[in-house]
Each structure stands twice: as structure tokens, then as C-alpha cells.
Nucleic acid binder design. Sequence first.
DNA 1: GTCTATATGCTGATAGAC
DNA 2: GTCTATCAGCATATAGAC
Lengths: 209, 209
Amino acid sequence: MAAECFMEQGFHATSIDDVARRLGATKGRIYHHYPSKIELFFDVHRAGMELLFSAVEPASQVDGDGITVLAAMLEAHAMAILEHHTFESVVAQGVQMHRFGATTPAQREILNELIGSRDRFEAMFKKAATTARKDGTLANVDISIAVKTLLGGIQWSLIWYRPQSDTGPKSRRHLAEQMVKTLVDGVRARGNTQAASAPAPARSTRKRG
Amino acid sequence: MAAECFMEQGFHATSIDDVARRLGATKGRIYHHYPSKIELFFDVHRAGMELLFSAVEPASQVDGDGITVLAAMLEAHAMAILEHHTFESVVAQGVQMHRFGATTPAQREILNELIGSRDRFEAMFKKAATTARKDGTLANVDISIAVKTLLGGIQWSLIWYRPQSDTGPKSRRHLAEQMVKTLVDGVRARGNTQAASAPAPARSTRKRG
DNA sequence: GTCTATATGCTGATAGAC
DNA sequence: GTCTATCAGCATATAGAC
């Protein structure tokens, strides 16, 4: 499936001719397999979601306390995003497309199905966070907002990650580990410094200069 | 400036007629002020970046240790993103556009300038993180990756945030606080549980079932 | 300054040859 | 199944009236 040009230019900027050219063929071939451009897009979207599920579901079954499971899921997600960033860019586009755009009722229905799977995906992380809460291993945060923020921290790598600067699975693993460490443990130093006990960030806007 | 329809449908899916209609006018008006569609887009992008700078720069001057300053900057950034999410969506699109697309050398040059300001923006956060490191208030993370992850966690709200479900500045403030708390303090419970001392997430994939 | 045509090119989709 | 025309519609941009 060479339909990953959607990633490079976006759905609207990508013409069927572009896809066909990259495939070394002409439009005829594509329209033989797909009735319309948007259904091709949906298919890529669907494949992207399946890749995410098959990466994260096993991770949700690891042994350990709540936060350990959540961290494993996040790392699996991060690895999947980096490895299949072409597909996952399309997924992200689909989410935005759902938010507005989709015109015909038929398209709307398919999009709803895809967004539904997206919601089930997020629910997996919420469930893991809830388990960690009961566990006592989750910090005192709003689970819904926290999960969106965690996933966002990882998914934003779709924007800045450049695969060509990648030397292979090892550097991807390093990236994934660092992202997850940042998100799970935070950037505030742990331990017995005075900063670690302050519960909320200061909001004074008094200036120095 | 009603050119925020770029946010709703994206650059390519938005026609000049769309923008003009929302403005209660016709194309003539727009082409009188802007020579082309992409220059209109660039102008919105530029405005979006200025909004970010004028939100975060004051926050970088608050009193406090390194992590406190960083947290204040993140919260200011989050508030700006939520308040001006239309403009910031355009900024995000511009980043992706830069990654590939931009065809003519003239467009490329303008985009480079805009992306340059984006890099200066990120550098502010890296500088604050470096200060916090010297401070001892920053956790042991890769600063470059951590900053990208922190900003990503906030910026992903561009995708899921629905302004209509917003009851005003107060709920935005709540969202911003929760996002920053999640990012700065992490989701792992702090304190004297056994989990808090484990440095890295487990990577065993042994299943239960 | 703002509007109403209008030119020009591109793109999604179709029909039919091979 | 895949390719080569080809149609029809739409979008950027321009020219000129008011």
C-alpha cells in the first residue's frame, strides 16, 4: 500500500495521480480497487488504527503495577507511531477531518466508525490509568485530561520526527524511551529537593526586569 | 481577520470563496489585500507566532527556580493555544507544510522565516530547561526530546479541544493547569511508594493470559 | 475599495480499448 | 486488471465596472 503520500502533502493536496505515479501506475488501477479517493483514505486510516491496537494491546497485558502497565502501553504506542508514522499521520488527519469537513452522510458514517475506534483506543489508556489510581501508583491528576496530554506528547512526534535522520530501530527505541520517561516521571526532579514537594506550579506573573 | 477558516478545513480545503463568504464579502476584497492565497495563510501564521511569543515571554521572567519558570512558560503557552487555537492550528499546518510541499523558492523563503521563529520559540523552552538543570530542579531527561514532548502534550490540544464546550476563561485555565501538572510532575505518584524509586519503565512483554 | 464576470488550469471520476 | 482518453466541476487569480 503506497498510499502514504497522504502523509506528505495531506489529503486534499494529494491527487490520485500523485498516488498512482508513486505506485508506478495510473489512476485506472486505483479506481479499480477503490470507488473514490476518500475511501482509499479511510482504508489507510483503518490500517493505521489496527497497527496501533496490535502494538498497544499486548503491552496492556504486561505484569506490574498500574503505572508500569501504563508506561509500557505508552512506549509501545510511541514505537508504533515512529515506525508507522506515515499511517499514523493519516489517522491524525482523519481526526481533524471528522471534527469538521465530512460532507456526505455516507462518508460521515465511515468517519464515525473510525473515530469510534480512536475513542476505544483512548479508553484503553484511561482504563489503565484508573487501575493505576486504585493501585496508588498514579499521581493526583484528572485522568481524562492527563491521558489526552500523554498521548499528545507522543503523537506530536508525527510533526517533528524526521525518519531520514533515523539510524534504525535503536534510535527509535531511544526516542520512545525518552518521551515516555518525560511523560511518566515528569520533568521536575524527584527526590528530596524543596521543589519536589510543591504541589502546583506558581502562577505569579511578577516580572524581574 | 476572519481567515481562521484555515483552521476548520485546512489550507487546501479552504477556498478563497469560503474565506470571503465568512467575511461577508467576495474574493475581490481579499485579493485587494493579499496577492495570493498562500500569503494570506502566511500572514495568519505570523500572527499566530506573535501571539505565542507575547504570551510566553513574560512568563519566562517570573521569579522562582528553574522548574517553576519552565512550568509558568508551559502554562502561558497552554493558555495561548486554547485561546487562539484557530491561529495556532494554522501555525501547526505551516510546520507540516514546511516539512514537504512548498514549491516556489519565494514561498520557501517565507516559510523558512516562519519556521525560524518557531525554532526560536522552542529554544526559549530549551534555555529554561537548561537553567533548571543547573538549578537541580530538572529531572534527568534528554532536554531536546523532553521539550518537544512537553510542547507536544500541550499542542495536541489543538486536535481535541472543542471551544464550544468551553464555558469561558475559567475552564481554559483548568485545562491548562491540568495539562501542565501532568507534564511537569508526571503521572507516576510521588512520595514514598515503592513505584516512585523505579527509574525506568519495565519492558518485559510477558503476558498474563 | 469592493464587486461581477471570466480566463485558465487542475482534479476527481468515468468509459472504453487492450 | 491496467491503461488511455475525456468529461465535468471547481478553485486560483485577473480584468474591468462602479
